[in-house]
């Protein structure tokens, strides 16, 4: 079991966003998180990642690193770092030989159609390039649990195809995915489970 929560309440102090949430997500599951703006999707991911404390209830998340994809506006575009350095941060905490790192970095850049862009500064990247760089960084982590907040934002049609193909590949590797997504058609096509959040109810259902 990857995530196990019982009667979980989260959100701003004394203002839980939905009724108590009871959810069990097995390892290797692919779950979409849907709901209107302000219903607490991002906060829920942060609670699962251990970045925010729940208000009440119990939460057990399997030990190990967590891959977390932030929404882009959280990133300071003036920051003096190159695309290659940003992606390579995914190696954090892994003991790998230098040559192996270089090889895997190249492979990740190629997989996200970023070859030849490693020297690009954060400021000069387009929104789509930055999004693919953040996803490439996530692909280099060895985190068994991946939390993605609107990963399809800023991606064009080709980029979105690439995204969903990679998400399925990650699931095939046995990783557990939770994806905040507003695209109902994409959710139906790719996710096995959907966690629908609304102020009056919060439930997990199987996508037909």
């Amino acid at each position: 079991m990857m995530i196990h929560c019982h009667a979980l309440l989260w959100g701003p102090a004394r203002q839980p966003l939905t009724p108590p949430l009871i959810v069990h997500l097995p390892a290797g599951s692919f779950t979409a998180v849907t709901g209107a703006n302000g219903v607490g999707k991002t906060s829920l991911l942060k609670v699962f990642a251990g970045l925010q404390r729940p208000l009440a209830g119990t939460l057990q998340v399997a030990r190990g690193p967590v891959g977390y994809l932030v929404q882009q506006h959280a990133i300071d575009r003036q920051f003096p770092i190159t695309l290659g350095e940003l992606v390579a941060a995914g190696f954090w905490g892994q003991r790998l030989a230098r040559a192996q790192k270089a090889e895997r970095l190249q492979a990740a850049l190629a997989a996200w159609q970023l070859d030849g862009l490693a020297g690009l500064s954060l400021q000069a990247m387009s929104g789509g390039q930055l999004q693919r760089a953040l996803l490439a960084r996530m692909s280099l982590t060895d985190a068994p649990l991946l939390l993605l907040d609107e990963p399809e934002a800023n991606l064009d049609a080709a980029g979105q195809t690439l995204l969903w193909a990679h998400l399925r590949a990650w699931q095939a590797q046995g990783r557990t995915l939770l994806v905040v997504c507003h695209d109902a058609a994409a959710v139906r096509r790719h996710a096995r489970h959907c966690l629908a959040l609304a102020p009056e109810r919060a439930e997990l259902y199987e996508v037909a």
Binding site: K46, A49, G67, V70, A89
Partner: peptide, 8 residues
């Protein structure tokens, strides 16, 4: 990106 570092 503090959230990324804190998550790993």
């Amino acid at each position: 990106d503090p959230l990324f570092l804190r998550s790993v």
